[in-house]
Design a protein around this nucleic acid. Structure first.
Lengths: 171, 171
DNA sequence: GCTAGAACGCAATAATCTTGCATGCCTGAA
DNA sequence: TTCAGGCATGCAAGATTATTGCGTTCTAGC
């Protein structure tokens, strides 16, 4: 799976992407005012981000405090056998389960950090059993039940703009 | 900070919220077709979700693989002193730093799980130093550098609809 | 049963998005 | 240096989508 090189982004792209990843509900007109372009130029840039895969989707963020029983758990996981195929199979299982909210491959004493989302502690426990205990390739796992969500989001650092031509020294 | 009770949600609300948290780019017409309402009824329900705080915002999800150097780290943190005030201060610091992407209060051998987002490992390391090492109330912390993002998202389990009036037994 | 409030669909209106076109800028080749 | 081609832009027109007023129906509480 070779990835294409990151597309060239200028300062305005960086601003737009950051604005959108923090709040995608803005109008093109609002965005345009913030970056100094017309609404149609903004729209064309956003269309480019989508076409090029920079923006994969747009989601509504729900406030977990405003719903009834909602349980998140962060699970630290280590595999028993670490072949490419075992890792691929594990990743695929995480991707395909809708109750797996996030999954990261990490360095250090654990192989993966997995965030689960369920409707009760019981359901969360069962989910953990199903995903990890029942998998004979899990060497160990440790569940950290979330009892408060302090901050939520997926924002990445603002993309670094490519260096443009060096500024002609005016001074 | 007492929270109002969770609002009553029916089956259609549950469907709409789930659809929106997975893909907020759909038109009202599309959503309406999926849940059996007119576009304007859908719009009014969504307006209600926003007004009631169920939906806090809408964000564009960026693909971390499509950007240049982007480093995530999951950090496990334990405080030294666990007074209410110490926890409040820690939470506030996490909330106010834009490079802290997520922060969860957890049960178990650690107090918090924190996800950091930076542009390089060096920057991530410095961020960790600034946030944790320089804080004399951190008893210990362990950084798990993310080297691959398998799955990303913030979707909660579909909200449970409130039981409506028991169905009149027709059979 | 009655009443008040909420939810709905329809249709009109407003807002927003998309696209064609002309123009200007930038880059690379001759 | 000049020229040509490609790309990005703004403007304006058209298309699409969201919003809202209004009348009707439904629901819950008294």
């Amino acid at each position: 799976m070779p990835e294409p090189p990151p597309p060239r982004l200028d300062e305005i792209d960086a601003q737009l992407l950051d604005l959108l990843q923090r709040d995608a509900g803005r109008t093109l007109h609002d965005l345009g005012e913030r970056v100094g372009l017309s609404p149609s130029a903004v729209q064309r840039r956003i269309a480019r981000y989508r076409r090029d895969g920079l923006i994969t989707r747009q989601v509504a963020v729900l406030d977990p405090h405003r719903f009834g029983p909602t349980v998140l758990a962060t699970v630290l996981v280590t595999l028993a056998r670490e072949s490419f195929e075992h890792h691929r199979a594990f990743a695929e299982r995480m991707r395909s389960n809708p109750q797996v909210q996030q999954c990261y491959r990490v360095a250090g004493p654990w192989d993966y950090v997995v965030v689960l989302a369920a409707r009760s502690m019981r359901e969360c426990s069962r989910l953990g059993d199903r995903l990890f205990k029942a998998d004979d390739n899990i060497r160990r796992y440790e569940t950290l039940l979330v009892f408060d969500t302090i901050k939520t989001g997926l924002a990445l650092p603002p993309p670094a703009p490519q260096p443009s031509r060096p500024q002609d020294g005016r001074s």
